[in-house]
């Protein structure tokens, strides 16, 4: 089942990349996607039935809008810290617990954290995420987990779990 989903995904990317639909192109696309699926299909995510549930796409859209907004904020934040003559940074690595079940969800959460203001994810061990934070202004673990991962975690749970 997951091989079929992976094959279709590969085919969609192939057609986006070539942007032409005629016979040779379709045959080449099927061939290339087939070979890719043969080698890398087993690394694809489990539970591909989730692709067919429409409400997940709705939350994905909400997540994307929120993500782009956070991303733009992150850039102004970095630009401010970089251009400020005194460089107002207080860096450190903090520990955050994640509650998402699915592996892919965890990966996307870590990636989102990397793109949001002031944080990059360093490592994920089990359910604990280690995050390098450029401006550690509080020592309270509950408070900073909410700031670092709370923005996305609930949304990503709706999408992937």
């Amino acid at each position: 089942m997951k091989y079929i989903a992976y094959f279709i995904l590969c085919l969609i990317i192939w057609f986006l990349l070539t942007a032409r639909i005629y016979l040779e192109n379709i045959v080449a696309g099927i061939l290339v996607s087939g070979i890719t699926t043969l080698f890398f299909g087993r690394y694809f995510i489990e539970g591909v039935g989730k692709f067919l549930e429409p409400k997940r796409y709705f939350w994905l859209l909400v997540y994307l809008i929120m993500f782009i907004w956070e991303c733009i904020k992150a850039n102004f934040d970095v630009a401010y810290r970089v251009l400020h003559p005194a460089m107002p940074i207080r860096p450190g690595i903090v520990k955050v617990n994640v509650t998402i079940r699915s592996e892919f969800g965890k990966a996307i959460l870590a990636n989102s954290i990397t793109m949001t203001p002031g944080t990059i994810s360093v490592d994920l061990i089990g359910d604990t995420l280690y995050v390098h934070w450029i401006n550690v202004f509080t020592d309270d673990p509950g408070k900073y987990s909410r700031i670092v991962s709370g923005r996305f975690e609930n949304l990503l749970k709706k999408i992937f779990d």
């Binding site: 970095v78 970089v82 251009l83 793109m115």
Partner: peptide
């Protein structure tokens, strides 16, 4: 934004802070 990322790469003190500016600014740029 790419320019800000490059300035950050030069100004910030260590590798982790430099990655912050290099990743965020350069990706969005």
């Amino acid at each position: 934004f790419d320019l800000f990322g490059c300035i950050g790469l030069l100004r910030l003190p260590d590798v982790y802070n430099r990655l912050q500016s290099a990743t965020k600014c350069v990706t969005l740029g």
